[in-house]
Design a protein around this nucleic acid. Structure first.
Lengths: 156, 156
DNA sequence: ATTACTGCAAAACTTTTGCAGCGGT
DNA sequence: ACCGCTGCAAAAGTTTTGCAGTAAT
């Protein structure tokens, strides 16, 4: 697996800030880039990383996630399932999350429609708004289909 | 402390659903109503409840929170500080949270401006949207004042 | 060579669970 | 009197930390 330009950008970022570029960090960054659409938790990421380098410890994954978060490469998001999940900040030009309450699938919606909402709230509260986080909860198309099929079955 | 009509409404709710109205549950409900604007965590709530009835166990608090959440009396919210905080659902006609990243203060904004955003996202993703959660992160007025004062001091 | 980084194990912290006894109904 | 609820303590799950050894610069 050749290393992407994106990975190299992160490596450079680490070195600029005088952090060492270890094998573990390279693999963790690579894995995060490869999982860009799955929002992995620390534990899930750890499993994937171990496929490539089995002796990596979970603590290293946590420490690296912490580091990458401080470098603003990734960002922790909480979907209320008891663990922090991570996404690349480069993805978030500005997007929202749509979570299916049945199967847990998370989709992203690239669109920022919240500019004027922010302005209005800033005015009303006196806060300086720096960021926002919008999650929408519902049922995805597949699950709705399944539910409807089940209903049809039980109605006979 | 006389029991509010609101508390009584919750008690009735519990009994309708065949749950027993224990002293612990009454006190927990009362405390939640009294803390409506603080978004307490289970542990914080437990401390407050113990002021009134010291032998209440933390597990009971968790179990009661769980029950009240299932009865849709309260709702867990995650502000990313590692513990679940709770708010009354009666408060959420539809509101958003504004969190100060410096002092942690949470303010609520009562206004729902997201109807058409929801519609657009439903159309685009195929999801049936049932609910949403908008958090805004920034710096509150007091903290900005403090920061500016500090800056002024260090500039001399 | 230096010293940041790692793996492991232990600790810390939030939340859940098992069980014997208590208390609403 | 029944059986749901409670307190306690133990367990479970996620994240953090201490430390001795390893590896990047």
């Amino acid at each position: 697996m050749p290393e992407s330009t994106e990975a190299k950008k992160v490596y450079r970022r680490l070195q600029e800030e005088d952090f060492k570029l270890t094998r573990q960090r390279r693999i963790i960054v690579g894995t995060l880039l490869r999982c860009r659409d799955t929002h992995p938790s620390a534990e899930e990421l750890h499993q994937l990383v171990r496929e490539e380098l089995p002796e990596v410890g979970l603590a290293t994954v946590y420490r690296t996630l912490d580091l990458l978060e401080r470098l603003d490469v990734i960002r922790g998001v909480n979907f209320g399932d008891g663990r922090t999940r991570y996404e690349l900040t480069s993805e978030l030009h500005q997007h929202h999350h749509v979570v299916c309450g049945r199967c847990g699938r998370i989709e992203e919606v690239d669109e920022d429609l919240l500019g004027d909402v922010e302005d209005r709230i800033a005015e009303r509260t006196g806060f300086t708004i720096l960021d926002h986080d919008l999650k929408l909860y519902g049922i995805c198309l597949d699950c709705r289909q399944t539910i409807e099929d089940d209903d049809a079955g039980s109605e006979l």
